[in-house]
Amino acid sequence: MSSMILVDLIQIVMTTLTVGSMYALVAVGVSLIYNATGVINFAQGEFVMLSGMTVASLYGTLGWPLPAAVAAALVVVVLYAALLMAITSAFAARISLIGVLIITIGASIATQGAAARIWDSDTHRFPPFSGDDPIRILDATITPQALWIIGVSAICIAGLIWFMRSTITGKAMRACALDKAAATMVGIPVRTTILLSFVLSGLLGAAGGIVTTPLTTIDANGGMLLAIKGFTAAMLGGMGSIPGALLGALLIALVETTTVTFASGAYKELPTFTIIILVLLLLPRGLVGGRHETGLHHDDLTRT
């Protein structure tokens, strides 16, 4: 009897880690772009969708070698991130940040439409990297692909944190997030740095799309829900904080997994939306206490 509970527990932990890793990649990406620009990017899930779809068609359908398909997906996502940066900063100069947020929702919808034309509206997947045979831990099981998801996410996020804390370029990114005028005065190229934030954010999403698609499948409309999950996780942890985004993602995954395990799959999305509402109402700065000051400092920065 007690071993049944243990098995359930292991299963919940493994599923939480798997789902939480995926959400974390999106949530950390949302936080990165928020820090750089003050904009909440609701097109964040499109990075995941575009990379998943690209690898599914090049590797899954056309039979390219996996590394080539992955490289192609990364290129696609980097270009898309640059486009998104160009669009949002063009609008940021003219309209409010809320306006730009709505532009990102528009960009997300447009991308879904474009993807449905380029590919189709079906679900796509490709074979898992290390086969399908589940690994048993007591009576709980985990697929090898889940380990890929957890491992790749952990490496990406740890790498990002290292980059932001230890390299001069990463520190310049943080400096830009804190004070664009002061960053300009010490010679940091602010626009290039914002572009870098978009690209890194896109690469995190792309990594997510590549490792999760074999397990979860992807379709042209799959990005939006992920963006909402990522946004909720980032808000819960504290918008702008990377450790916060990670924590928020794991908590949401935990709540979701427990709901599905003990209640029903039908209620899977209920907790996320409940959490968004509660956090927005009661805890707008999140658990870790993210950045409260929002917005581009374009008041005192001459655009050139």
Binding site: R174, A175, L178, D179, A181, A182, A183, T184, M185, V186, G187, I188, P189, V190, L301, T302, T304
Partner: peptide
């Protein structure tokens, strides 16, 4: 604006504008 540092100019601005965090 950002080229000024390379040209040999540095600024100690009003309110210091440090990277506080």
């Amino acid at each position: 604006p950002r080229r000024r540092a390379a040209l040999g100019m540095a600024v100690v601005p009003e309110n210091r504008r440090l990277f506080g965090e």
